[in-house]
Simulated scan of single mutants.
Amino acid sequence: MDDNRVWNFEESLWTGDADQYHALIDDECVMVLPEQPFVLTGAQAIEAVSKTPRWSSVTFSEQQIMRPQEGLIAIAYKAEAQREGADGYVAYCTTTMRRLEHEEWRVVQHQQTPAPITSAA
């Protein structure tokens, strides 16, 4: 998967609906998110997303892509997400994807650490 496709794939997980999550999250995925229950399986993450308003937009910075072996991609980045009627959200994230078949990828790991809130001086 080329770099642009990696980032489009990741963006779709922030802005897509539960069907998108179901299509791209592996059953054996593990996630660590900043809200209870904190540690989720793939099925639990899909269920949580189906009950959560989606982000209307997200931008990535500080992006890193690693390809430690054929069929495995690990990324790290800073995400800044917005949705109407809510405060923005900034977090540092990692995602690991594995290839199942040609051009078919699934997330097997995702983690979010909220960025520290900084105040203007």
Rank of each mutant, 00 (worst) to 15 (best):
A74C: 07
T118N: 12
I73H: 02
G71L: 01
E84G: 08
V32Y: 11
Q111C: 03
E10G: 02
A121F: 14
G42C: 04
N8P: 00
D3W: 10
R106N: 05
R99S: 11
V58C: 12
V6I: 14
V49I: 05
P37C: 14
T94L: 01
S56D: 15
V49N: 05
T95L: 00
V107C: 03
P114Q: 08
W105C: 03
P68M: 04
L100G: 00
P114G: 08
I117R: 15
C93L: 08
A86H: 09
Q64Y: 08
R54T: 05
W55S: 01
A76D: 04
E28R: 14
D26S: 14
A115Q: 00
A86L: 02
R106Y: 06
R99D: 04
A79Q: 13
C93V: 03
V108L: 02
V58W: 10
G71I: 01
F38C: 04
E10T: 13
I75L: 09
A23D: 14
G71K: 00
G42K: 10
Q109M: 11
I46Y: 14
K78Q: 11
V39R: 15
S56Q: 13
E62K: 12
E11V: 01
P37M: 13
A23H: 13
C29E: 06
S56A: 11
Q111V: 02
S12E: 05
F38M: 05
E103R: 15
A86C: 04
Q36N: 06
A91P: 04
A48S: 10
E80Q: 13
M31C: 14
V30L: 11
L40S: 07
A91Y: 06
Y77R: 03
T41Y: 00
A74M: 06
Y77V: 03
I46E: 07
N8V: 01
F38Y: 15
Y21T: 00
V108H: 02
I117F: 15
S12Y: 01
Y89Q: 06
E84M: 06
V58F: 12
G85W: 03
Q82G: 11
E84N: 14
V39W: 11
W55D: 00
R98D: 03
A76S: 15
W105A: 02
K51Y: 09
T59F: 10
D19Q: 15
P53E: 05
V108N: 00
R83A: 09
Q112G: 02
